[in-house]
Design a protein around this nucleic acid. Structure first.
Length: 592
RNA sequence: GCGGCUGUAGCUCAGUGGAUAGAGCAUUGGUCUUCGGAACCAAGGGCCGGGGGUUCGAGUCCCUCCAGCCGCGCCA
C-alpha cells in the first residue's frame, strides 16, 4: 500500500509532469525549512530553469499557470512564491486518509515491505564473558536493538547476533586467575563482580602494579603473563581444563545478562561468541598468505599493505601472534566469512564504539580483499561515555556505571514520581501496577537517553538528564500516550462511524501531519542507521498532540460528529506513538 | 607524524545544497472554574570554531588552519 503523504507527493509529481514543462527527474520536492513559509511541500525551480535557459521565477509561474490537479485529490492548490512553487494539502481529504492508514495497519503503521527478500545481520551488545555489563554495552545493546527493530519494520529479514567476547588473551587471564584464586561462591551479577575482581588483581599482579598486594612477587610477573597467554592458546587448541572453565563462565555470564536483556526488551537470534569461529582461523591465515596480502615477520603473520574502501592506506596489523595465537581481527574476519557462507546477507551492521573505527576499516578491507563477502559492511560507531569530570569510565578508576544498577536507579526514581501522582489523586493504581509502570517509565528513560541524539556523539554522564521526566524524554512521550488512552477510556466507546473531513482545526491538521510522517521517518532512520530520527519524530508528535489537547476538547466537542472524529484522531495518535516507541523498544503504559 | 569523530543559543542537541538557522534544559513572563500540569503559550538569548573556495544559493560540499575526544604490530 502507499501511504498518504507519498500519494500527496505522487499527485504533485504527476500533475507537474502533465504540464509538459518539467521532467520527472528534475522534480525534487521538499518540505520548506524556513519557518516563515507555510507550504506542505515546495519545488525550487532553479535547476530546471537553468537547463531551459529561463529564470526560476518565470518557470514557477508557468508551472502554476499550466497546473491541473485532480479535483478531489490530496493537493488543494499550487502557488508561486518567487522561484518556488508551493503546494498545499487538501485538509479535508488528508485527515480521513491518514486516519485510514493508521487504522488499516494498526501496529504495523509506519512499516512497509521495502526490504522484503533482503537479509540484514545486526551485531550488537557483545558483552565480555566473566564481566558485568556496563555503560558501554548499554549503548551497543540499545542502539542495536532499535536498528534491528527498524529494519524488521521495513520488511528485511533481520538476524540479531550477540557476538560475545569469550576468547583471546583476556580470556586466558580469566582462566589463569580462576585457577590461581579459585571459583567464586556467589551467583548472578555478584559472581561476575567477583570474577572481575580476580581478573583485575591478577592483571595488576601480572603487570607489577600492585606492590601492596601480599601475593606480589616481582619474579612472578613474566611467568604470569606467559601463563595467561598460554591459557588463551590452550583454549584455542581445545584443552579440556580450559574448555571446562570457559563453558562454566559463559553459562554464568549468559544467565546473569539475561535479566538485563529482559528488562530492555532485547532479543537475539544467535549468540555465537568469538570462540564459535575458532576452527576457521587457520584457513583465514592461509588464505591471507596465499593471496599475498599477508607475510611472515618474526614468526607473526602481518598485513603490511592494505587500503580501505576509500583507497586510504591502512596501518600495519597482525593476523597471528608469534606464539601462534590469533587476534581479535582474525576472528572478526572469520565471522564475516561464516556469515556470508551461512546467511548470504545483503548488509551486516556492527554496533561498536568509535575507538574501534580503525579495527573495522581493517577488518572490512581484509574481508573484501580475500573475497569473503559482497555484503555491505557498516560500522555504526557510537561515542564514548565520560563522567562529569570528563574522564572515561573504567573499573580501575572506580567510576564505572553498571547496567543493572542504572536500571534499578531509574526504576526507583520513576516509582517515587508515580506514587506522588497517586497521592495527588492524578491517577489510580494498585501497588502491582505501580511497580510495573515504574519499570516501563524508568527503563524507557534510560533507553531514550541513549537514542535521542546522534549515536556518534560522545556523552557526558548526567544523571539528571538521563533520568529526566520532562521535556524531550521518554516519560513525556509515554505520558502523552497515556493521556490519549485516558480520553478513550473516559469516552467509553469510540463510534465506528465518523467523518474525518471535520478535522480541519489548525491543531488537528498539525497533529495529522506529524502522524503522516512516520512511514518516511522509519525509512530515513534505517537508511541513516540513526534511531534518533525516530526519537525526534516522537517528540514532535507528542508535542503536536499536547497542543491539540490544549486547543481542542474531545469529550466536550461542539457536536457529537466532531467528538467522534476527534476520538479517532486520538486513537490514531496513541497508535502512532506506540509504534514509534516500540521501534525504540520503549514500552507505552496506558496509565501512569 | 598519520587517521577517524566532533565544534550551531549559557548548557545538551536537531538542521543529510534552498526562502528570515530550530528544540529541550536553564532564565523571565503568561495560560488553566483541567478530556490527567510529567502540560500549554510567549519573551530574551546566535560573526553556525577561523579563513579561503565551489554554486544562482553554503550551518550543510571542497581546501586549509585552530580546538576537543579517540585510534595507530603480538589486548579486545
Amino acid at each position: 500500500m502507499t501511504y498518504t503523504f507519498q500519494r500527496f507527493e505522487a499527485e504533485i509529481t504527476d500533475a507537474l509532469v502533465a504540464t509538459g514543462l518539467i521532467a520527472a527527474e528534475e522534480i525534487e520536492l521538499a518540505a520548506p525549512k524556513a519557518t516563515n513559509v507555510v507550504a506542505d511541500l515546495a519545488l525550487p525551480c532553479f535547476r530546471a530553469a537553468k537547463a531551459r535557459g529561463t529564470n526560476p521565477a518565470q518557470l514557477a509561474q508557468d508551472l502554476v499557470a499550466a497546473w491541473q490537479a485532480p479535483a478531489d485529490g490530496l493537493v488543494e492548490r499550487a502557488e508561486v512564491s518567487g522561484p518556488y512553487v508551493n503546494f498545499f494539502l487538501n485538509k479535508a481529504a488528508f485527515a480521513p486518509a491518514v486516519l485510514r492508514d493508521v487504522a488499516e495497519r494498526a501496529s504495523g503503521y509506519g512499516c512497509s515491505e521495502l526490504g522484503s527478500g533482503k537479509r540484514v545481520i545486526v551485531e550488537y551488545s557483545s558483552p565480555n564473558i566473566a564481566k558485568r555489563m556496563h555503560v558501554g554495552h548499554i549503548r551497543s545493546t540499545i542502539i542495536g536493538q532499535a536498528l534491528a527493530n527498524l529494519y524488521a519494520c521495513l520488511g528485511y529479514e533481520v538476524i540479531r547476533d550477540n557476538h560475545l567476547g569469550d576468547y583471546g588473551k583476556q580470556f586466558g587471564v580469566n582462566i589463569a586467575a580462576t585457577l590461581h584464586y579459585g571459583r567464586p561462591e556467589a551467583e548472578g551479577e555478584a559472581a561476575l563482580a567477583a570474577l572481575e575482581e580476580q581478573y583485575k588483581t591478577y592483571n595488576q599482579l601480572m603487570k607489577g602494579k600492585s606492590e601492596d598486594d601480599p601475593d606480589y612477587d616481582p619474579d612472578a610477573e613474566l611467568a604470569m603473563d606467559d601463563n595467561a597467554r598460554a591459557w588463551s592458546l590452550k583454549l584455542e587448541q581445545g584443552d579440556p581444563q580450559a574448555l571446562e572453565l570457559w563453558e562454566w563462565m559463559v553459562e554464568l555470564t549468559k544467565t546473569a545478562n539475561q535479566r538485563n536483556y529482559d528488562r530492555l526488551g532485547v532479543q537475539f537470534d544467535v549468540q555465537h561468541g568469538e570462540s564459535f569461529y575458532k576452527d576457521m582461523l587457520g584457513q583465514i591465515i592461509s588464505d591471507a598468505g596465499e593471496s599475498g596480502v599477508a607475510e611472515r615477520d618474526n614468526g607473526a603473520v602481518v598485513i603490511k599493505e592494505l587500503t580501505d574502501a576509500k583507497g586510504k592506506k591502512l596501518p600495519l596489523f597482525l593476523l597471528q601472534r608469534s606464539d601462534g595465537g590469533t587476534l581479535y581481527i582474525t576472528r572478526d574476519v572469520a565471522t564475516i566469512k561464516y556469515r556470508e557462507d551461512t546467511y548470504n546477507p545483503d548488509t551486516v551492521i556492527y554496533i561498536v564504539g568509535q575507538p574501534q573505527e580503525l579495527h573495522f576499516r581493517q577488518t572490512f578491507a581484509l574481508s573484501k580483499a580475500l573475497g569473503y563477502t559482497d555484503a555491505k559492511l557498516i560500522h555504526v560507531a557510537f561515542g564514548t561515555v565520560f563522567d562529569d569530570q570528563g574522564q572515561a569510565l573504567s573499573t580501575r578508576k572506580g567510576n564505572m556505571v553498571y547496567l543493572e544498577i542504572l536500571l534499578d536507579d531509574a526504576h526507583i526514581r520513576a516509582k517515587a514520581l508515580i506514587e506522588q501522582k497517586v497521592v495527588e489523586g492524578k491517577t489510580t493504581l494498585t501497588p502491582a501496577q505501580i511497580a510495573e509502570i515504574a519499570e516501563m517509565v524508568g527503563v524507557g528513560a534510560v533507553i531514550y537517553n541513549d537514542l535521542y541524539q546522534d549515536t556518534k556523539r560522545n556523552i557526558t554522564l548526567d544523571w539528571e538528564r538521563m533520568l529526566a521526566f520532562e521535556g524531550n524524554s521518554a516519560p513525556y512521550l509515554q505520558y502523552m500516550h497515556a493521556r490519549c488512552c485516558s480520553i478513550i477510556r473516559e469516552a467509553g466507546a469510540v463510534p465506528a462511524e465518523y467523518d474525518g473531513t471535520l478535522l480541519t482545526h489548525e491543531a488537528e491538521t498539525g497533529l495529522l501531519k506529524e502522524i503522516a510522517r512516520l512511514p518516511q521517518i522509519v525509512r530515513e532512520a534505517a537508511e541513516r542507521f540513526a534511531p534518533f530520527v525516530v526519537a525526534d519524530w516522537l517528540y514532535a508528535t507528542a508535542r503536536a498532540f499536547s497542543a491539540f489537547y490544549d486547543a481542542c476538547s474531545v469529550l466536550k466537542a461542539a457536536s457529537p460528529e466532531l467528538r467522534a472524529a476527534r476520538l479517532h484522531l486520538v486513537e490514531a495518535t496513541a497508535q502512532a506513538l506506540r509504534n514509534g516507541l516500540m521501534l525504540l523498544s520503549i514500552r507505552a503504559p496506558e496509565r501512569m
